[in-house]
């Protein structure tokens, strides 16, 4: 019995990760040697295993950027796959350090749950996808349709609001898991699928058969700023995550890319010098070395590179920049300056 007890204790000790959540997250991450990133793992374009079984996608690159800023190595990340139901609990309980999983920034999540949203990574909105053969051109023609969605999302609530507001009847079919939802939609169990439009473009791009058989309707029924979330009890960590994201956006604004990084390090522009840590040491303010942003940009590229790689017009998702363009190029992407 004694050896049994010993073993149990040993087993528990091995598996309990004592993460001091109230203490500095950054110290814990450094000590651990890797970043715990809450991800989806099943959404093409945002986070999904690539052909080599490695996680890749838009959401994944922000975790890689944070890892590069801390460790000067984008691969010191462990991706914890979470369902939409589990993601907030996982962050609250300290199971992950940062949540990068197409999570909408809302007031109730930001204020009432011990979470804080550090930075919006992409501005999305909820939409509808239908089969072309239905001949539907507007979401207002969807009265009586069967609608597939997932439980535990803002999508489920927006959908109810939209149909009720427009006095249309509908049949919700709500799934726990995205793969069941996709299977139900593509088999024709539902007429419509509703989700965030960019994520849905990924689903459409991977439709069995021809992606052109499905159309995404023009209506956008909600605002979905998808953002990085952290626990609200560590403001230093919050700043770090926020400013890594902002650095990538600022890099695009200044024209710094992963390719011209070496050249830009010799730039005369004081703003670029501040960003890349050539002049001054802003990284210190968030507990990092002064070349933090240069490392992040070198690893994943600037915002535009990330966008183009995973969701842009040349990717399978074929999403235009639209409102996600920089503020000075007709979009609303606006990062506070680094100085």
């Amino acid at each position: 019995m004694k050896s049994f007890k010993l073993l149990t204790t040993g087993f528990l000790a091995l598996s309990l990760a004592a993460a001091s959540a109230s203490a500095a997250t950054l110290d814990t991450v450094k000590e651990r040697g890797k970043l715990l990133c809450g991800s989806n793992g099943k959404t093409a374009g945002f986070s999904a295993p690539n052909a080599k079984g490695k996680m890749s996608g838009f959401d994944v690159d922000f975790c890689r950027a944070i890892s590069a800023a801390i460790f000067n190595d984008p691969d010191k990340v462990e991706y914890i796959p979470l369902t939409s139901k589990q993601r907030l609990t996982a962050l609250q309980s300290g199971e992950i350090d940062v949540l990068s999983r197409t999570t909408t920034w809302t007031m109730s999540r930001d204020s009432g749950m011990g979470l804080s949203f550090a930075a919006t990574t992409i501005y999305d909105g909820q939409g509808f996808m239908v089969h072309k053969d239905l001949g539907v051109t507007s979401a207002l023609e969807l009265a009586g349709a069967a609608v597939c969605t997932r439980t535990g999302t803002t999508t489920e609530l927006n959908m109810a609001d939209f149909f009720n507001k427009n006095k249309m009847e509908y049949k919700p079919v709500v799934f726990e898991d995205r793969s069941e939802e996709k299977s139900a939609f593509f088999s024709g169990r539902c007429d419509v699928m509703t989700a965030d439009r960019i994520a849905m473009a990924g689903i459409r791009a991977n439709a069995p058969g021809n992606p052109d058989d499905y159309i995404i309707l023009p209506e956008v029924i909600s605002k979905e700023p998808l953002a990085l979330a952290v626990r609200s009890n560590d403001s230093e960590w919050f700043s770090l995550v926020r400013w890594v994201a902002y650095a990538l956006i600022n890099a695009e604004e200044m024209g710094v890319t992963s390719d011209n990084l070496a050249k830009m390090l010799k730039s005369e522009d004081p703003a670029i010098q501040r960003l890349l840590g050539v002049n001054g040491n802003l990284g210190e303010k968030v507990g990092l070395k002064k070349d933090w942003a240069a490392n992040a940009i070198g690893a994943v590229g600037n915002y535009s590179e990330i966008f183009e790689r995973h969701v842009g017009p040349n990717s399978p998702l074929k999403i235009e920049r639209g409102i996600n363009a920089l503020w000075n190029q007709g979009g609303i992407l606006y990062a506070a300056p680094i100085r």
């Binding site: 439980t151 535990g152 079919v173 709500v174 726990e176 939802e181």
Partner: peptide, 22 residues
């Protein structure tokens, strides 16, 4: 709940998620 039937666990789970009253 796994195949989209709205039983007690499914409704309870959704409520849990929307309110946080686990």
């Amino acid at each position: 709940v796994a195949i989209g039937y709205s039983d007690l666990v499914s409704v309870g789970g959704t409520t849990l998620n929307q309110t946080g009253q686990a």
